[in-house]
């Protein structure tokens, strides 16, 4: 299947991608957004979003996603549902090979997002929202009075354990080393909390479940000894991972794999912009993603007029 040459091809249908689509379409550019599943990205899995301004009662992330898509499409942005297989961002026009044919773009906005790092255990994906979670701030409230396990040893794991200690009856922090990587402040705060226990030198090696998670199997990394831990929830907090495999060798990435670009979203390749969570930046939120989207559309417009 052959597609026309677009002014802008956007990769990823989260808030950053659809905002780039909205602004680019309103600027009169011919725009296609390529999404592998459905609008919204990580946002679509969040039932209640309370920190996106303009919705005093909060808003369902799925609904917000659909609305962002509809709004961009109202101004003529197209959506193609396809998985991107390969890209050539140096070519002119830039080449995006997908499961639905090859797309060409004079500019490209990379808005492929980031996701939590997974443990990569069997059944993990299927147990999401059924005991396995990656965001204590989002899903913690479902575990009021229950027992939860937090995996990880960094600042975010420590923050999750603290937050959950105020909700859950018991929090067990599992870490593969014998001390936390988190800053001292967290150590002190965690020591003071009554209902947080630690399992050092341990890895979660199996998820025990029926319909929902019922517990985890731990393996002691020093002795190899296995033990079982009953729990209602497992919060995985072992870091995040941007979806940038497709671009390595073309776009400059930082140590974490994020695309290096400043607030103007410009990457090392002229006409290629990094939008939203995929960009190296200090805070990854819906509001910062949509800001990137507007910026990328503006930069692309300037690029095209030269």
């Amino acid at each position: 299947m052959s597609h026309p040459v677009y002014d802008m091809v956007i990769l990823g249908g989260g808030p950053g991608g659809y905002t780039a689509a909205l602004y680019a379409a309103r600027a009169g550019m011919r725009v296609v957004l390529i999404e592998k599943l459905s609008a919204g990205g990580q946002m679509a899995l969040t039932e209640q979003i309370d920190n996106y301004p303009g919705f005093p009662e909060g808003i369902d992330g799925y609904v917000l996603s659909e609305n962002m898509q509809k709004q961009a499409e109202r101004f003529g942005a197209e959506t193609a549902y396809a998985q991107v297989l390969r890209v050539d961002l140096q070519a002119e026009p830039k080449v995006i090979e997908t499961t639905d044919g090859i797309f060409y773009g004079k500019t490209v906005a990379v808005a492929t997002g980031a996701g939590p790092k997974e443990l990569e255990l069997p059944s993990e994906k299927a147990l999401v929202n059924r005991g396995v979670a990656y965001c204590a701030a989002c899903d913690g409230m479902f575990y009021r009075g229950k027992t939860v396990v937090v995996v990880g040893g960094g600042n975010s794991a420590a923050a999750d354990a603290l937050l959950l200690s105020r909700i859950a009856e018991k929090v067990i922090l599992v870490h593969r080393r014998d001390t936390l990587r988190a800053t001292k402040v967290y150590h002190q705060m965690l020591q003071k909390v009554q209902n947080v226990e630690f399992r050092w030198n341990s890895k979660v090696t199996e998820l025990l479940h029926q319909q929902k998670l019922t517990g985890v199997r731990l393996t002691d990394v020093l002795t190899g000894e296995e033990s079982q831990l009953d729990c209602d929830g497992l919060f995985v907090s072992i870091g995040r991972k941007p979806a940038t495999e497709l671009f390595s060798g073309q776009l400059d990435l930082d140590n974490g794999g994020y695309v290096i670009a400043g607030e103007d979203t410009q990457t090392n390749i002229p006409g290629v912009y990094a939008v939203g969570d995929v960009r190296s930046k200090p805070i990854r939120q819906i509001v910062t993603a949509v800001a990137d989207g507007a910026m990328a559309a503006h930069m692309a417009e300037a690029f095209l007029s030269n």
Partner: peptide
Amino acid sequence: PWCGYCRRIAPAYDR
């Protein structure tokens, strides 16, 4: 209806 990921695949499934 309570399954978040089910909701995400629904539009793709309809297509």
